[in-house]
Write a protein that binds this DNA or RNA. Sequence first.
DNA 1: CTGTTAGCGCATTCAG
DNA 2: CTGAATGCGCTAACAG
Lengths: 349, 349
Amino acid sequence: MSAPSTAAAVSRPRPTIDDVAREAGVSKATVSRVLNRRGELMSPELAARVQEAIERLGYAPSPMAQALKRGRSRLIGLVVADVANPFSVAVLQGAEKVCRAAGYMLMLFNLGDDEAREREAIAALASYQVEGFILHALGRERQVLDDALQRGKPIVLVDRALDAPLDLVGLDNAQAVPLALAHLLQQGWNELLFVTEPIHHASSRKERHAAFHAFVDAHAGPCRGESVECAPGDDAALDGALRALLHRAGKKRRPAVLAVNAVVSLRVAAAAKRLGLTLGRELGLVGFDETDWAGLVGPGITTLAQPTGEIGERAARCLIERLEGQPVEPRRFRFPARLIVRGSSQDGA
Amino acid sequence: MSAPSTAAAVSRPRPTIDDVAREAGVSKATVSRVLNRRGELMSPELAARVQEAIERLGYAPSPMAQALKRGRSRLIGLVVADVANPFSVAVLQGAEKVCRAAGYMLMLFNLGDDEAREREAIAALASYQVEGFILHALGRERQVLDDALQRGKPIVLVDRALDAPLDLVGLDNAQAVPLALAHLLQQGWNELLFVTEPIHHASSRKERHAAFHAFVDAHAGPCRGESVECAPGDDAALDGALRALLHRAGKKRRPAVLAVNAVVSLRVAAAAKRLGLTLGRELGLVGFDETDWAGLVGPGITTLAQPTGEIGERAARCLIERLEGQPVEPRRFRFPARLIVRGSSQDGA
DNA sequence: CTGTTAGCGCATTCAG
DNA sequence: CTGAATGCGCTAACAG
């Protein structure tokens, strides 16, 4: 066909605005005007001639050069805690959609759950002149944040607040946690355990943890509850925590787990299997984050569905508004969770 | 704290090479040399002075400007069929890791399974001067590919070959399919069905489809097999296909499904549940792609694990070699799959 | 060994 | 209404 026989194609450089100008017999400035002011204030025939030249050459302006000149790159940096986490992916999808629609490109940096790379991420992205950040971050690299802010780069936080006056979009944990726990209680599960990954500085985990204990305290009569931080991969600790839970429950009470996210839900389900516990029977389970597989693990896992797509979209929209509009006071958007009831929280007794 | 009270921070511009030069009392060129040739051929004291100024100002060179000048952006474009697909994510992770280590940044474009966006993706990425592409693509936008190639931008294909002389890294489907089918057969499942999403131009699906029928033909005695293309979301079609499979199997034969990827595996598991079929008992199942949840759906789903991380890493490495080395003939890397046996393919009879 | 100069591709003054 | 000139931040000749 028309393809070169080896991949070592002639590196014909892409056409520049000068090429177009020459082709159309006008100056660069005219071409630029056709591109930017949409051919207003210009003899229509000239505009048409330029347009034609543009198409003939397949010319497209270089965002790099534009960025250099205008100081605006039309790039948005997205820092994600871990792409392996379904929540991150969902946010990514929503954000990408909005950005693309608004003519921005997304530059992705995956932390891979390595907090140490956070600075690196922001620095790298900033050096590429991203105009703003969407941060689904791990720790609280205050210094880097200040740095970015002082360079006038807006930041929108997703899911996790830092102690900074920044935009935040995330879940309404104070609504979500009682929603789940009330359901568990109503179904007869009254010996509760909140399982989370190490809380560190993740505000969403902090909030869920706090809301959990607030609920338990407020319902001290019918229910009891504890919480445990369980490092990724430390299955032994998780098994231990579950055994302790069962022990606390004894024969009179019914034990159930609230899992801080989908990853933990899965780990709890695996642990239950290891310990020979049937979900929804010997062990109740509700987990944050709805996933494709939630309905198919065991009897189905009851989940607190976050509107993840919306969260990502709102984050992007929020950032873009800030980029294109006037500075506004930091805003916080909190979306409600929806409880999707499945077998893991139905009392089989 | 030190944070400004509103987000409307002073947009103090980042320092340029000129600032550093002035600060150190030298010329831009000297600063540039310190940065690039690591202070060789230069009086150590001068180099030190410059280095100090760089650090004092927190200067970092602008990749945009560098790109403009050098014609090299240190950017790699990653086009992904659908981030919702675990395979895509795994490749993304591997690729990102290698790129970062080699000093490249990844620009992500998610197709969201929309073939129409493929051109847009490549054009957008190309306009940002990415030096090369990693493509986990949908169709065969030959024209765009040629375009990219003629501009001297190397392309590495992941998972799916196009009919072009390009590097490819993917699974050894001719090894994987018989591995799975032989296992099913040995366990007594002899009425087989290959369920795939629409094949279109995805070579991996084509290969799996072909290998499936080759195997069935070669073992015409003990087993029979058909295949079905099932559009995403069309659960009715899937249910119908499964019912037909059961009907073909009758009482004498045992029906099993080979699912083309993790998404389909899950859909088959869901369909089985709808139809009241127990996996590993009334219906066998092996699916491509190992996932976190495979062990926990039903009796556990037997999978063909792809070395996805390796695939992503190899793709990135392959591209970077081409970027930094001499042009080479197109290479093809095929990785073997590993069979992870679980309950869905164990004969409970 | 170091400084001066000339662009990379583009948008934007400012003249005409 | 259009063209010529300037500079964004940087590197790579080329001078000194």
